[in-house]
Design a protein around this nucleic acid. Structure first.
Lengths: 210, 210
DNA sequence: GCACGCATGTAATTGGTTACATGATTGC
DNA sequence: GCAATCATGTAACCAATTACATGCGTGC
């Protein structure tokens, strides 16, 4: 239930309307906790009912400015210090890695190098934000800087990993090729290997269907 | 829609029942793409309707063994090579970092060091798996090894980051303390600082939009 | 007066979690 | 006979996404 806490967190810095919050989500939290407009408005309603935020001003065009209440601040502090973070899960890039065995080594490599490229781009983006931001001494920016550093380090590690992984595939491919050449001394069959699953033996029949 | 592909991926290695798949999800994909029993059975139904898997055997206790079809394999390959991975998002640990300004520096540090501890535990787990596994030369294990290495590197980087971050808070705290001491020469007002929002003024009300 | 940005909301659908319900087989 | 494990499914709920609907205010 962290959308709630993201909203409370943003409101803890300054009062804002739903519209403002959407801009903040897109500007600062899009990589960490994306949210849609309908979610934000919905959550503001629920938070108001729960007494964790309240409308503090009405502006033009029906604008409602929300501010966090003491109750909301208590809840936010509780979440920050007492509730165990669950950590990231569901990485559909990594999920693909598990199944790369069913495409050709070349395709697998292409995939991994593409992942490296994406990570590099993310890193570049983080670096640019880092340079453009003015990191003053204020406490508020310390944590922004720390969060950015996370992105920086993770994307760097990801890129390195992906390049390393692509190389692993090369060496594995080479090893298999040499084994194949060696096997051909005994029984040279059809020379070229087609694409397809390379892990054949264990499970009997395959793509044949019924 | 990656649950679908996780199921197809597992079935591409060997036919399995829903029950088997659940064990596989818990054993090998729990960190990457967790799934619940109801999800798995539901997805098997949808995949059957879509013609991507089929029931190939009936066992005791109503057991149904599913196998991937050519259509399913095509879909899996397409997803692996043609569909852009979206990468990880929604890290509720990192989300907390953005709002650490509202708790005391000490609490923030405690949080960060705890994160380091969690990452260290994850890394230890990965290392143990690495040792216990027998990494033979087969292609099939190359990708398992690569995925594990990802976990290894990411948790290591995460731990380092968290320790670094905790230190950043120390230095920021020290700087603020010295500034406070300096300020007291001119105007020693209310001496004790309560916990609470320390970032008050800087941004007026408007944070520029896109 | 018209386009653009501000501003709020609802409805429909999908994806995911938790809990419940049921029953067959195996091993002791 | 009893417990553990195998095995399948449904129902209710919550979280998130997409699409739709509406209207005011400002500046040109």
């Amino acid at each position: 239930m962290s959308l709630r806490h993201a909203v409370l967190g943003l409101l803890s810095e300054a009062p804002a309307s739903g519209y403002d919050l959407m801009k903040l989500f897109n500007a600062t939290l899009s990589m960490v906790w994306p949210a849609t407009q309908s979610q934000v408005y919905g959550e503001l309603g629920k938070l108001t009912t729960a007494g964790m935020v309240e409308v503090t001003a009405h502006g033009p065009r029906g604008r409602k400015e929300y501010a966090i209440t003491d109750e909301g601040l208590t809840e936010l502090r509780h979440w920050l210090t007492k509730v165990e973070p669950s950590g990231p899960q569901r990485d559909d890039g990594l999920l693909r890695v598990f199944f790369l065995g069913i495409v050709t080594p070349l395709e697998a490599q292409t995939f991994l190098l593409h992942q490296a490229e994406l990570a590099a781009r993310t890193r570049a983006m983080c670096e640019q934000v880092d340079e453009n931001a003015q990191w003053d001494d204020e406490m508020i920016s310390v944590y922004g800087r720390i969060a950015l550093e996370y992105g920086l380090r993770m994307s760097a590690a990801q890129e390195e990993w992906a390049r390393w992984a692509a190389e692993q595939v090369t060496t594995a491919k080479a090893r298999r090729a040499s084994e194949l050449a060696h096997a051909q001394h005994e029984g040279p069959g059809q020379g070229h290997e087609t694409q397809g699953k390379d892990a054949e033996g264990p499970q009997g029949d395959e793509t044949g269907g019924t």
